[in-house]
Amino acid sequence: MYILGIETSCDETSIAIVKDGEEIIENLIFSQIETHKIFGGVVPEVASRLHMEVLNKIFKLAMEKSNLSLKDIDLISVTQGPGLVGALWIGITFAKTLAYALKKPLVGVNHLVGHIFANFLRKDPPNFPFISLVVSGGHTEWILVEDYDRYRLLGKTLDDAAGEAFDKVARLLGLGYPGGPAIEKAAEKGRLIFDFPKIKCERELDISFSGLKTSMLYLIKNLQKEGREIPINDLAFSFQYRVIEELLERSFIALNKFQTSTLVLAGGVVANKYLQKRFSEVSKRENIKLFMPPPILCTDNAAMIASAGYYLYNKGKVDGLDLSADPSLEIF
């Protein structure tokens, strides 16, 4: 079965063709990041206009590269939300029109579920149940996944997503946008010089980044007041260290609490090499089976949407021509 995946929820326009939920035939991603860079963040109207310009072209390219014909497509899977509403509508309208014209079934997929399914694009996917940490520019959530279509939210960020916190702190340090890769790069040359306070929330699996951000702001202000040089690389490392240790700690609390031995990471922040190193070390020590997608499948892409669509379709999910964008779609 060939599944066409479509992803336009934020600033990446992506079309993928996936076979049987696990084998990537094509996964084309057009990133708008260079355009949004000058604004210091994603501008929704600009994102929608760019999706509109390129989506049909990327689809044509994907079909040509795959050597498949339109009638070979068996299922159309599209991101329904969460995301930017105008951007989501581009992909959904494309998907619905295509499903209608080709007379093929359509499945709307939750973007977060999509990220988790980036780990199913392989021969030996994770077994249920497992704990998943979805950590990106828009999300930081711990989820107990019991089946392809059974999810339980265990904890989440009470304010910014981790990726957002990276962006904001990168701005404070003058490191530019996007903040994740910028901080990771600076941190490579840095060391732990400042012990940011541990993050405490009322519920043990929730997290909050606002205090950490404020500590960084005052730290920089004080250094400036004293006329001292800002140790950018060291502060980048110290911040990254604290964020990742907190993510790690909560992931293992969740694993213990629900007696599961599989941890599945998903989302753009998982592309961070230091995060990968720390999660690998601790998982090995604690005898936990760890899944992390390759970097290209960590950030937004349509292959993960195609994979999720395949498994959900097999569970009986199918959508009609009234499928609508839902910018704050929940999975629970």
């Binding site: 049909n56 689809f59 509508w89 029109t97 295509l98």
Partner: peptide, 19 residues
């Protein structure tokens, strides 16, 4: 309407592309 224009044109572009 920016959104309206995109929705209508996406339907038309995709149908014209398929056929």
């Amino acid at each position: 309407s920016f959104t309206g224009l995109r929705i209508g044109m996406m339907v038309i572009k995709t149908l014209a592309q398929v056929f």
